[in-house]
Write a protein that binds this DNA or RNA. Structure first.
Lengths: 197, 197
DNA sequence: GGCCAAGTAGCCAAACTTGACTAGTGCTCG
DNA sequence: CGAGCACTAGTCAAGTTTGGCTACTTGGCC
């Protein structure tokens, strides 16, 4: 699951340097558990992995009180990686965790880039619905009932997502969110991402 | 992911004995890749695990031509486990793969049992929607935009699922599907589950 | 008849996730 | 005051998943 990676990198980047517990705490405050299942162990793992891959740098912090901690900072490559992952998450249907993570990190993209990728998602969803409708029609009577039910459910989800994505695209076009190329963007960390440490 | 477990046990049970490749092939023919990501390695692992747990028995089959294979057969405990997993999958919201697997194995339950559990799902979804609406209302203006968007999407999904579950419940009540307590149930394997080996 | 492609069957090391565990700090309440 | 509880910070072994790999058979085609 690269949603973990995206979220971890994102938090470190947005907070301008963080240690494991901080990432964990921040993600918790975003209510991540409700749409992705990321346990603390995975966060520490993801941090070490990202550091080994050169996306983060490790800085030992002698514990002024308590055990020593490791502070992670995002490198320039991390930024690129995050942007790639967000684009990927927007594009990919069939992966809610990744989509949610991408939404959380949406302001890492420029406005036009974001709109383009959301629109690509819209196009994909529409194509998939057409595909499925075709299958539905030609599907002969011997398709097992449960398969038809699953298809129905899936189509329903696809339709709600489609509408939602369209709305998101429109809102972006109307100037919602503060994107990477907007004045007062991520470089000045928004309030709700300010760390309380 | 216990969806893997359910699917593997289910195929072995329904087919009345199968080896790894057979399970893999059958799942593929159900179009499982589209709603769950189960790679072949996981199937072999799940089979071995289930055998070690006493849910399946292993029977070495000397390869009459080709390498020897291991035939797995479901024990009585497997049947109970499957029923439990299906119930669980119906109950649990927030786990599409598990729900889909449960739908695929729905006829393992008796009709009343199935209806009861689908109805429980309905109740849970309704409760979650109420919960969320409450949060939505009281959510002060400083909630980050992306969180509101995510919530909107989530609510949309919950609503389609709710309607779908209600329809499923009604259909079950009207006699759809051939359930475990119906004449001509799983003991006589339905055509679409017949193995072609 | 020789060779290549596709299908059959499964293994395994590496990567990742999980959840339980350690260990220190600090508050609070009888 | 000190027992107990919650919080901070992280490690680790065990479990699971991944996806690439082996190896054998079959069938077709030149």
């Amino acid at each position: 699951m690269s949603a973990t990676k995206l979220l971890v990198l994102g938090v470190v980047h947005l907070s301008g340097g963080a240690h494991g517990y901080q990432v964990r705490y921040e993600l918790q405050s975003w209510g991540v558990e409700s749409w992705a299942k990321i346990k603390s162990g995975s966060i520490y793992h993801a941090l070490k992995k990202a550091a080994a891959d050169g996306l983060l740098t490790e800085h030992a912090e002698p514990g002024n009180s308590g055990p020593e901690r490791v502070l992670y900072r995002a490198t320039a490559r991390a930024r690129d990686e995050i942007v790639d992952l967000v684009r990927d998450g927007l594009r990919r249907t069939h992966d809610p965790a990744m989509l949610n993570a991408a939404i959380a990190m949406l302001p890492m993209l420029t406005r036009t880039d974001a709109i383009a990728h959301v629109n690509e998602r819209v196009a994909r969803l529409e194509a998939e619905l057409v595909e499925q409708a075709k299958w539905w029609e030609h599907s002969n009577g011997d398709t097992p009932e449960h398969v038809r039910d699953q298809a129905e459910l899936w189509a329903g989800h696809a339709r709600t997502e489609l509408e939602w994505a369209k709305r998101l695209s429109k809102r972006l076009a109307e100037g919602a969110y503060t994107m990477a190329d907007d004045p007062g963007s991520w470089r000045t960390v928004p309030d709700h991402l300010k760390m309380r440490f």
